[in-house]
Nucleic acid binder design. Structure first.
Lengths: 215, 215, 215, 215
DNA sequence: AATGAATGAGCTTTCATTCAT
DNA sequence: CATGAATGAAAGCTCATTCAT
């Protein structure tokens, strides 16, 4: 009688795979890619080192998939925030805000996923993910331009400035401020405001008063 | 007749040291800290591995010195641009511009030096360097506030946003645009404008028209 | 079905560990601690270098354990010989004899274990082991003094002289006599006699004729 | 005109050679053979590393010569003490005493020279030196036997026991007693007494009262 | 299918020896 | 002839990956 994987077996396999990915995620959140070892991931997942290799052909592949998954999820969330009927500026601000807010919950992980250099194979994927964010931000701005909200400007470059400001806002407190102060709402407001102001000069309706202008 | 080290010998020694630092620099510019090996640096410098250790006690020490040297130089140049009699906004813009312009000449190296996570010993130095830039930018803004040019705002956070935007502007073209287009003057203008606009909302003299506003 | 380490696996592991210790022992017996390299031990044990590090955290740890194990064993054997109801002199002689006899079976190894200077970490353990022998010999003599068999004397120094004589008797034939002649019973008799005579002057009952006196 | 070394040049060369040997001696006295590096010897001698190699073809050769020289000197002194008109027992005791006394002035050096295992080439010389001491001690005893002072016995083995006791007396305090107490005259007396007593059983004139016998 | 022991290439670093100056 | 910078062959150790159980 031929072997036939049961549904339960399939389910268990999928669970294991998730378990390993989650363990890798936690390890990276703690020590970065640099400090991640097969042994440590296996220990966190409660499986053996060999099992890792049953689910992923190599550590590079594991990292790559993790990166893709995490980035996709974040990109999706930010994209959803950027989608809707309101003005482009509001949608952009919402996307920036939600992305930053989420990243600041786990700044070490976010930094690793967004900026930490890794082996070339992984780097390629990481750049692709980054590009996804760039394109999302640029896309919102392009729509806003198309909708007459802004004069045309170099949205690709603006997207770069925005993601850069967000990244640094993630890294910076990680190194410099007391624990717990990193996701201070005021700081998030500031970064969102900075990014919006960065392109405010291109708004068609100059009469709108920037919400950051002091009384 | 006893040996006496000649001037030429001394010069050669200094040259060797520079040669090694330069080789390390190039290696890092190519593969980042992560991909730098004693063997590769030695090969690039055209010396043996042992020679590296005559000039530097360890790879960490070599990285550290390289980092400190490079960062000091850049910081100095940017600081000089930020110093002078003119309005704070102009000086800030000048500092951002020159830092960005110089970094874009060698984006991979700049990124490694500014942002790449490394071994803890080196990281400490790297954070200090980064802090130097933050403080320089924040300092110019504090002066501008003190001089009545801006309303008070969170200059530390603004500095973070500015360095972040610069960094991304460095990394981004490295990944995404054709060679040679990275230091396109228009792109540099854009980033400078973005950063200045980011804090423009806090200017006291609202009458000044942003130079980035399109006709 | 989840993997469960079988008894056979466990046994194999223990055997491997012993195998490595034995290989190290043989290597030391051949070339001393000084000439022992991870590579050589691994080759002798028929395992890879990496495997050595699975069983011992470092070469120092391997040496240390080997030393402790071997010394403990020898000390135990000698101590047992020195324990019992008879006169102290007889028990001391028995301890000297058995220790010497056993060591002469592998003089190079014995010398390395007993006398060869090594890295400081190992040296500490080696001195402790040596001290164990000193104390054992001194202890037997102290008991004999307490029991009225000897007048009081510097038993610590006597123990040093005894272990020294034994050590040299181990090294000496290793260098000077044909193979196999080292553990000549007559030579062992001589050393035992020499050591006993060394403290015979302190015996209370002077009437006893030394068994080493020739007819 | 052919080059002709002047007398002054020759003298200077000989002085340098001595200087290097002395420096090596001091280095060994401090850290043993194990801790001796070309660099350290050169630094102590106040010459360059290269110069060492002008006077000695290799470190091994330097060690070898040092060993031979030091051992010769000590052997000579001890031999002189063992030579003369008096009874063999007295001469032996004098030789043991002077050798031990001198060694205890620099126990670390003495231990290194007498017992520290070294590279095989050096070891061969070290064993030869050791053999010199054995033969000297054995020679005195052979003479005493020939002179009717002792019954015949295994003088080679006795010599081994004597040198062993001396060595251990050198090593032991080095590890175990407070500084300065090592060359305590009473301890030297004890070792000399121990060694003499070790062969006392073979004396023909049994009427002689051992000087170590207590009142 | 899961285990974790075994592997071995590769890492940084040391140091006796050589050789251009 | 002295110098000390340069060499490069090891050394101990790590860790991603493989494979017998």
């Amino acid at each position: 009688m031929p072997y036939r994987p049961t549904e339960a077996t399939e389910r268990r396999k999928a669970e294991r795979r998730s378990l390993i990915l989650k363990a890798a995620r936690e390890q990276i959140a703690t020590d970065g890619f640099r400090g991640t070892r097969v042994r440590l991931v296996a220990a966190r997942a409660g499986v053996s080192e060999g099992t890792i290799y049953r689910y992923f052909p190599s550590m590079t592949a594991l990292f790559t998939e993790l990166l893709r998954m995490s980035a996709m999820r974040e990109l999706e969330v930010a994209t959803r925030a950027a989608t809707g009927p309101g003005p482009g500026a509001d949608r952009l601000a919402a996307a920036v805000r939600i992305h930053l807010t989420r990243a600041l919950k786990r700044p070490r992980l976010a930094h690793a996923l967004l900026a930490e250099p890794v082996a070339p194979d992984v780097e390629a994927v990481r750049l692709a993910c980054r590009k996804g964010f760039h394109e999302m931000f640029a896309g919102v701005m392009d729509q806003a331009i198309a909708g007459g909200e802004y004069y045309p400007f170099d949205t690709a470059m603006a997207a770069a400035c925005i993601t850069g400001a967000i990244d640094e806002a993630i890294i910076w407190p990680f190194a410099a401020v007391p624990d717990g102060a990193a996701d201070n709402p005021q700081r998030i407001d500031f970064v969102v405001g900075f990014c919006m102001a960065g392109i405010a000069a291109f708004r068609r309706n100059a009469g709108v008063i920037s919400p950051f202008r002091r009384a």
